[in-house]
Design a protein around this nucleic acid. Structure first.
Lengths: 223, 223
DNA sequence: CAAAAAATTTAGGCCAGACTAAAATATTTT
DNA sequence: AAAATATTTTAGTCTGGCCTAAATTTTTTG
């Protein structure tokens, strides 16, 4: 008899998933920071999730945490909800891409599978959300992301923007303004060894743009 | 410093509002039945709501409960969410009118004021939901409902269906099938003193229909 | 109008999920 | 490699919102 996956648990699993994506296991402290919860409370929850039947995470004291297959499915379910919702809010209710995150964050825990299916159908089964992030498939597998940080490009390299981080509305507004959006074609004009700045040219625009690493690490491109 | 209105509290207020609509104050037991919560638990919550600052309900031991102005506003907010959501789900995602209730029940506690406003605009600021129930206005007043139970009509009286109860999906499917929907024009052909059955004719249909009180008390009409 | 029945409240508990303070373990620095 | 620092865990608490059992109050009825 598998136990109930509360909203709170969904949040833990989602953030563990995201922390696992970059590098190995998620640390108690990182998780606590993301969830805005005291580290001690996180430890308690991880113990609970590791002892659940079936276990949702693999957790050894002081060694961080990763998801089990079950935990990953639950995480992908929430992420699918989140990204479909963001797409839906933009397409159907005219939200701008910097406004959708918090609304989706609340709704993702609450909608039914029926709602999810209807949204997906109404949107034509999209594969990416408005920020270009990949939407887990209906059978809960995450498509492979081939993109890498814009910051990793060097002079004369050309690439297409695939996705941008969605959690800072101010950054999103800025990116939209300067035209750094999914599908934009970018050529690197120069790279500054010194501060990591990239001077880029966006296809269809007249002037070049200089971006610092605070930006180029949040933008992901593909050749 | 006004206290937090949790989802649970929203549910209490909503159901108190609905119980107050028919007749005076809501009883502990009725509330408990509606909320699927033990009566003892309801007592506890009512004491808490009555002592909140500002108070959300007026409650005297053994004498039932009514809403304060503050409590009523909070209730109308939730009801506005619920009814806009039902309308939105039907219009935008193709839900049928018997499927929307439970989805709206969960979403109503979670959507932002922005979401509410965008829905209302997208729907053209509707005044009734798919079941014909009045939607509280944006400034949280409830329009006056002039309708009365179909059960109160007698032979040869004619009226227009305004709304139907939305909480029994099976009834809703049945009503749709026989054509008892908002705006349908009905004439009472006969009334059975004995069992309260009404034989009615719906404008545009060939044959008469016989309805028992289980149905006619859930359908509301206006001359 | 008193006894029985129904409704309501009190009392005492439980659980999830958070918190703080203190203890233990890991990691970094010197 | 010992000391200093950072991270993580343990221990103990709190709050919201529910529960059951028992006591009390109100209502119904013979």
């Amino acid at each position: 008899m598998s136990e109930v996956i509360t909203q709170s648990i969904q949040d833990y699993l989602k953030h563990i998933y995201e922390l696992n994506e970059n590098g190995g296991s998620a640390s108690t402290n990182d998780l606590a920071a993301r969830l805005n919860i005291a580290p001690a409370s996180v430890t308690g929850m991880l113990q609970k999730l590791a002892n659940a039947k079936p276990p949702l995470v693999i957790y050894k004291k002081h060694q961080g945490v990763t998801l089990t297959k079950n935990g990953e499915k639950a995480a992908l379910e929430v992420i699918r909800h989140h990204r479909l919702l963001e797409t839906f809010l933009v397409n159907t209710l005219g939200y701008s891409w910097d406004e959708v995150h918090f609304e989706a964050e609340k709704l993702e825990h609450v909608i039914s599978e029926d709602f999810e299916a209807r949204m997906a159908a109404a949107l034509g089964h999209p594969t990416r959300d408005p920020h270009g992030e990949l939407i887990p498939t209906v059978d809960l597998t995450m498509p492979v992301d081939e993109s890498r940080p814009l910051a990793s490009l060097r002079t004369d390299e050309t690439a297409t923007v695939r996705r941008v981080s969605d959690d800072d509305p101010a950054l999103l507004r800025h990116l939209l303004e300067i035209g750094v959006v999914p599908e934009a074609k970018i050529t690197v004009k120069s790279y500054s060894e010194f501060d990591g700045n990239l001077t880029i040219k966006i296809e269809g625009q007249k002037s070049n743009i200089v971006l610092g690493t605070a930006v180029t690490n949040q933008v992901f491109v593909e050749k």
